[in-house]
């Protein structure tokens, strides 16, 4: 993956040095049309269709990302020449039509670090469209997998544990389950509070692609960096990135009444002393999503640590337990005063 990182930086330098217009290789007409090409190469989003050579306006990372089976994700945005995005008051980014958000998933120790899949979120005049592509065995191109697929992958997680899983590439509807706000598809990750542009993305590039680049100020801590925020703020950042895309009043889990956005108050609707609604086996025989001071009797933890589809949260995109994330939330709940609700 180092190879990819290097290429990303090269692409960024290229973008900022070259005045920023996306190289002609990107097929803007295809992006803005209604087609769903069978091959990723058709879009021209990678030079020579090499995943290590994205044709990016800019690459980005997130302070606190969504956990996806320990996959390393490489994200970039392609904004059509002459257009700019705007950071809105609520921190979401209004990307112009013709924008593509590209995210590739891979593991450094699997298949020589080559990506397994690349997901596109394309902003067309009719709205955002999500398209999942799975890289072919020869690594030369990726094929549209509109109905998703399970792909066997093997890797080691940071603590050295070996995993061999049936990694789930989401189908187009499943993309929307998470990327849904009041029934329409929206981007999740690139919000001002979480979005980090590489240091190499200079002021010129920022001004080229954003009408209000000064609003790009990430305030969320890094979930795994105690120096970046308090325990509670890191836990809240983790819940925002991993849960809040569904657990908000306009998301797929709106009916649960459990709302876990960065901006939500830490009260009963945040899980503190909240009884299960439609949790079924997800309650694990416990009374509350979060029992202050007692992570072992908090079914939020139970669901995060389960792999059973009738229990596990998030419902999609996880075939392994994120031990380190669960440990953070355990620590947070354990530190709460026991009479906090």
């Amino acid at each position: 993956m180092k190879r990819i990182a290097a290429a990303l930086i090269a692409a960024l330098l290229c973008a900022s040095a070259g005045g920023g217009a996306a190289p002609a290789a990107v097929d803007q007409a295809l992006i803005e049309g209604s087609a769903m090409p069978a091959k990723l190469s058709a879009f021209g989003l990678f030079a020579g269709n090499d995943p290590a050579r994205p044709v990016a306006s800019f690459a980005y990372t997130l302070r606190t990302p969504l956990f996806s089976d320990y996959a390393e994700k490489h994200r970039f945005v392609s904004i059509p020449a002459g257009k700019r995005a705007t950071v809105l008051a609520d921190g979401t980014v209004d990307f112009p039509v013709g924008t593509v958000i590209v995210k590739s998933f891979g593991w450094p120790d699997f298949n020589e670090g080559r990506p397994v899949e690349t997901r596109l979120l394309i902003h067309r005049a009719s709205g955002w469209v999500a398209l999942p592509y799975i890289w072919d065995a020869d690594g030369k191109d990726a094929s549209l997998a509109i109905a998703g697929r399970r792909v066997p992958v093997a890797f080691k997680s940071p603590d050295g544990t070996a995993h061999a899983i049936q990694y789930g590439v989401p189908n187009r509807n499943q993309c929307k389950e998470c990327h849904s706000r009041a029934g329409t598809i929206v981007p999740i990750g690139p919000k001002a509070r979480n979005l980090v542009l590489a240091d190499t993305v200079g002021a010129d590039t920022r001004a080229l692609y954003f009408t209000n680049p000064a609003a790009l100020k990430p305030v969320m801590p890094r979930w795994d960096d105690p120096a970046s925020g308090t325990l509670q703020d890191r836990a809240r950042a983790y819940l925002e990135a991993n849960c809040a895309h569904c657990h908000n009043p306009e998301g797929s889990a709106s009916n649960s009444g459990l709302f876990l956005r960065w901006t939500d108050p830490v009260g009963v609707n945040y899980g503190i002393g909240k009884r299960p609604t439609a949790a079924g086996r997800g309650s694990g025989g416990m009374d509350f999503a979060i029992q202050p001071g007692d992570p072992d009797h908090s079914f939020l933890i139970y669901r995060l640590e389960s792999l059973d589809p009738g229990i596990a949260m998030p419902e999609l995109g996880r075939s392994t337990v994120h031990k380190e994330g669960a440990a953070l939330l355990r620590e947070w709940i354990a530190a709460m005063p026991k009479d906090a609700h």
Partner: peptide
């Protein structure tokens, strides 16, 4: 033999 998703069929 279900491995993923919270339900069998979801209609939205």
């Amino acid at each position: 033999g279900q491995q993923g998703a919270g339900e069998g069929l979801l209609v939205t």
